[in-house]
Amino acid sequence: MNRWAQTSLLDFTGLLAAAVVVYFSLFGGWVMKQDFISQIPASLLQLNTIFLSILIEAVPFVLIGVLIAGFIQIFVTEEHIEKWIPQNKFLAVTMSCVVGACFPACECGIVPIVRRLVAKGVPIYAGVGFLLTGPLINPIVIFSTYMAFGNDLKIAGMRMAVGFIAAMIISLFVSLLFNGNQLKEAHHHEAAIQTKNRKIPFSIRFWDMLKHSIDEFFDMGKYLILGAFFAAFVQTYVSAQALLQVGEGWISSTLVMMGLAFILSLCSEADAFIGASFRNIFPATSILAFLVYGPMIDLKNTFMLLSVFKMKFVLQLIALITIIVFICISFLN
């Protein structure tokens, strides 16, 4: 087929795809005006609103995440990684935590990046360190925490310090407990292919990067959507207040706050205001547990991690994070 026919075929398919979508969206406007919409219970509509709002909030960061993941896939080689990551486990963990702390990401955007890094040969413990500190320690989170607690740097500072220490300890434990990359599928043929890849011109590699990002988005997207839906469901139908009745004494109140952080699945940039609203009823250390635990692991994030890592590893990681954060908080008491 000649070139002209090929391009016009592309244009035509593209237009057709767009037309199909536009048609259905116009149909949506008509549906919204129908009577049966008003018969849908308000709580369902609110569930839908919360669900979509979580998605809308997360999607920009996920897209940036998959683009970075695509970049790593195409442009970073295993030799690079070998050169950058120190052999010593402790140094590797420290480095990954520091890099994570400098890297402004949120908990959904970072999952595809970590997946790509680990697939490229970054040891799992270093990947976890990056995964934990990325969303927790960054300028936006520090600033919003500072604002939420009445322009007080103490909580914001504690959040960073405790978070960093906890992330270090968790990653070190991971380095002792787990071997292998823990990904769902094995990657054997990567090294051989990379050398071949270098001869390909930049423009094609850039194009490949974008294609990878799309595949990555479709891979991650469904887990993000599931996670967002469950988080929205919990918010609409499960009473957080019932949970709060349990919280007497610092042990149970810390556990309650950690549970709340898990099920609410808030973005780390936004959770400080929620945390601050509990100041009157819970001790500061319990609130700190909420602020440290939430960005490390939550319901939405768990779904995304399950798409990447083996189920057993994810469950053990959650247990590890929970125990270590709890112990770190206990030391403060």
Binding site: F24, S25, F27, G28, V31, M32, I37, I40, A42, S43, L45, Q46, N48, T49, I50, F51, L52, L55, F218, G221, K222, I225, A228, F229, Q235, T236, Y237, V238, S239, A240, Q241, L244, S277, F278, N280, I281
Partner: peptide
């Protein structure tokens, strides 16, 4: 993947109300 698109296009956004407030609690 298509589910949020369908609910997004076909269902109106609803302002949160007191029933959600009751779930969250005014502390």
């Amino acid at each position: 993947l298509i589910f949020p698109l369908v609910t997004g296009f076909f269902l109106p956004a609803k302002t949160l109300d007191a029933s959600i407030a009751a779930k969250k609690g005014t502390l």
